[in-house]
Design a protein around this nucleic acid. Structure first.
Lengths: 338, 338
DNA sequence: TTCTGGCACTCGTGGCTGATGAGTGCCAGG
DNA sequence: CCTGGCACTCATCAGCCACGAGTGCCAGAA
C-alpha cells in the first residue's frame, strides 16, 4: 500500500498537471505544495508511483504525467466532488427555468453543461421505455390513414403515421383511443406490450385488422425509439487543448458524431451518482485519451436518461463532477414540474 | 475585361489549388494544363489577375492562391455544376428511402451530405410558416390542461402545453377542434393568424377565455418556431484541412454551434437553385475563410426549408454544388411522398 | 530506516545558420 | 504579344549547438 505522503504527492501531481498542462517535476512540486520534504524525497516517491503505474514520464528526464490508473485513484480516493458556488446554482436554475418544452430543456441543458465545464456536453433525451404514458392519441388524417401520437410524463412526444388496411370509422377510432388510454395511461412504456396484447380481440371482427395495424405500429415505435436520441454541444471546447494533441481531436469528433458510440458511453453509467470513466476505460478507440463524467437524471428517484461531459483525461474532475451532478439534479426537478 | 486565356489561367489556378492545397506557380500550371503558352506568359497573366484582385500571393515569390473574388468569378462564370454519377444518385435514393419519420429524414440527409461532400452538412427542418396545416389536435390532459398538437404536410409535429384559466369540457374542446380544423386545414401556417382571428367570438361567453388562451398559444407557437431548428453533421470533416489552418477551426466550430448564425447563413439563400456564398460574403467573422453552398428544398415547387454544406473557401465547388442540388431534390421528393 | 544534498547524465527545446529550390519580375528579342 | 533568360527573393529544412529542467543514484545525516 502507498504511504500517506505518496498519495499526497500523486494528488499534487494531478492537480498541477491539470492546471499547467505540462509534465510536473519534483522541484516544482515542492515549491507549489507544502509537502514538508525535499525534492529528492519526492523523486523517490515518484519512482515508486511510477513503478506502480500511477504516473509515467513521456521521456527520460522529463516531469511526470498521471496515467489513467493515476487519475482513477485520484478520483476514487483523493478528491471529492466540488460543490458549485451559490451563484452558479442560481445561474443554472435561471437558465433552465426559461425552457418552454422538452426540446428546449435538453438544448438548454447542453449549452449549460458545456459552458459550465468548458467541455463537450452530452444529454440523452428521456427514454421512452423508462417513462410512463401520459396520453395516446389517434388522429384520422385520411380515410385509411391514422396518426399515432405518444405523450410521456417527461413531455416527450413521438408520432408515427399508420397506413391502415381499410378505411377507419371515427367511432372505431374513438373506441380504440378510449380503450387504449384506459389501459396504458400512467403505466410505464416498457409494460405497454403486455397491456395491449389482447386488445384487438375485443373488437368487431371487421375492425381487427385495423386495430392490429395500429397496435403493431405502437409497439414498433417503442422498440425503435429505445435507441435514444442524444444532443451534443460545446464541441468548440475541444480546441482548447488541441495544441497538446492536435491529431486526437479528429477521432474524438468522429466518435461524438456516432450516436451509437455516445449511447454506449452513457449506457455504462450507473443509475445514481456521478460516474467517471477514464481514458482507456472507454472501450472506444478514438476516446482513449478522453474521460467521460456522467450521471442519470429523472423526474423522480429513477433515472429516465443520462447526461454528462466528455473531455480530456487531464480535466478538473472535482469541478466537472460537481457541475454534472448539479445540472442533473436541476434537470430532474424541471422535468418533475412540467 | 479579362481575355479568354486569362480566365483559363484563373480556372486552372483554382482547380490546381483546390487539388493540391498549395500555392500554384506558373511553371506547374503550364505543365499540368494545355494552355499553349509559356510560363513567362502565364506569369504576366497572373500579374494582371493579381492586380484585378482575383488571386494573390502569400509572400513574395510564392505561388498564387485565389481570393474570394477569384472563387466568385470561378463559380459564376468558369465552372458549371457537376452532376452526380448514376451510382451516387442511386446511393442517395437508397439511403433516404429508409427513413421512418421526419427526424429520420433530416438525420439521414445530414449524414448523406456530409459523406458525399466530405464537409460539414447543415439541414434546416421544414419551416412551419411555409408549410400547410394537415391537422390541429387538442388533447385534454387534465381538467384545465390541454395539449395542442400541430401537424404539417411535411410531417413535422409541434406540441405545446396550454394551461387554461378554467376547466375545459370535452364538448367545448371537440367543438373548438372541429372549427379550428375546418378553418385552417390545407392552409399555410402563415395564414393561420388571420384565419382564426375572430374564432373566439363564435363561442359562448363563458368559454371564450379558454378558447382565447388556446388560440394565443397556437399563434405563439407559430412565432416561436419561426426561428427554425437545424441539424448539423460531419464536423469531423473540419479536421481534414486543419494542418492548413489549425487556428481557424475553433471559430468555425463556435459559429456552427450557434443556431442563430446558421439560420442567418441559410437565410441568405435564394429559394431556387444552388446558392454559393464565399468567404467574406458570409457576414460572420469566424466563417471568413469558409464558403457555404446551399439550396432550398420542398415538397412542391416552393422551398419549405434549406440545406447545404459549410467548407473551406478552397473547396470543389462544382462537385459540392452537384451534391447539394441532388440531395435537395431527393429530399423534396421524399417529403412529397410522405 | 528514512530523508537530504550533491552530482553526473539525459534529452527535448529553441535559436541559429547555410543550402536548396520554387517562384517571381523584368527585359530584350522574336 | 509572346518567349527565353537572368537576377533576385524568401520559405523551408536539415544540421548543429547551447541551455536547462529533470532525473537517478549515492553517501552521509537524522
Amino acid at each position: 500500500m502507498l504511504s500517506e505522503r505518496r498519495l499526497e504527492v500523486l494528488r499534487a501531481i494531478v492537480q498541477d498537471y491539470v492546471g499547467t498542462e505540462e509534465p510536473v517535476g519534483s522541484k516544482a512540486l515542492t515549491e507549489r505544495h507544502r509537502l514538508g520534504v525535499s525534492p529528492a524525497t519526492v523523486r523517490n516517491d515518484m519512482a515508486v508511483l511510477e513503478e506502480e503505474g500511477f504516473i509515467h514520464q513521456p521521456y527520460t528526464s522529463a516531469g511526470r504525467i498521471p496515467t489513467d490508473k493515476g487519475y482513477r485513484l485520484f478520483v476514487d480516493k483523493l478528491a471529492g466532488v466540488k460543490p458549485l458556488t451559490a451563484a452558479e446554482r442560481r445561474a443554472i436554475q435561471n437558465f433552465l427555468d426559461g425552457a418552454v418544452d422538452l426540446d428546449d430543456v435538453v438544448a438548454r441543458t447542453v449549452r449549460l453543461l458545456a459552458q459550465l465545464t468548458r467541455q463537450v456536453a452530452v444529454v440523452q433525451y428521456p427514454s421512452l421505455t423508462r417513462s410512463t404514458v401520459r396520453h395516446v392519441e389517434l388522429l384520422s388524417l385520411a380515410p385509411a390513414r391514422v396518426m399515432l401520437v405518444l405523450i410521456t410524463d417527461t413531455g416527450r412526444v413521438e408520432q408515427r403515421l399508420v397506413d391502415c388496411p381499410a378505411p377507419v370509422g371515427e367511432t372505431v377510432l374513438a373506441d380504440l383511443r378510449a380503450r387504449l388510454n384506459s389501459r396504458v395511461v400512467s403505466h410505464r412504456f416498457s409494460d405497454v406490450p403486455s397491456l395491449v396484447q389482447d386488445l384487438a380481440e375485443s373488437f368487431e371482427h371487421d375492425d381487427r385488422p385495423t386495430v392490429s395495424t395500429v397496435l403493431a405500429t405502437l409497439l414498433e415505435t417503442l422498440v425503435e425509439e429505445t435507441e435514444e436520441r442524444i444532443m451534443l454541444g460545446g464541441t468548440a471546447n475541444l480546441t482548447r487543448f488541441n495544441h497538446d494533441f492536435p491529431l486526437t481531436i479528429r477521432p474524438v469528433l468522429e466518435a461524438l458524431e456516432e450516436q451509437v458510440v455516445l449511447l454506449k458511453l452513457l449506457g455504462e453509467v450507473k443509475d445514481s451518482g456521478v460516474t467517471v470513466r477514464i481514458g482507456h476505460e472507454n472501450a472506444h478507440e478514438g476516446l482513449s485519451s478522453t474521460s467521460v463524467v456522467a450521471m442519470g437524471y429523472g423526474s423522480g428517484d429513477e433515472a429516465v436518461a443520462r447526461l454528462g461531459v466528455v473531455g480530456p483525461t487531464r480535466m478538473d474532475y472535482p469541478g466537472t463532477m460537481g457541475a454534472v451532478r448539479a445540472v442533473a439534479r436541476y434537470v430532474g426537478q424541471i422535468l418533475a414540474e412540467s
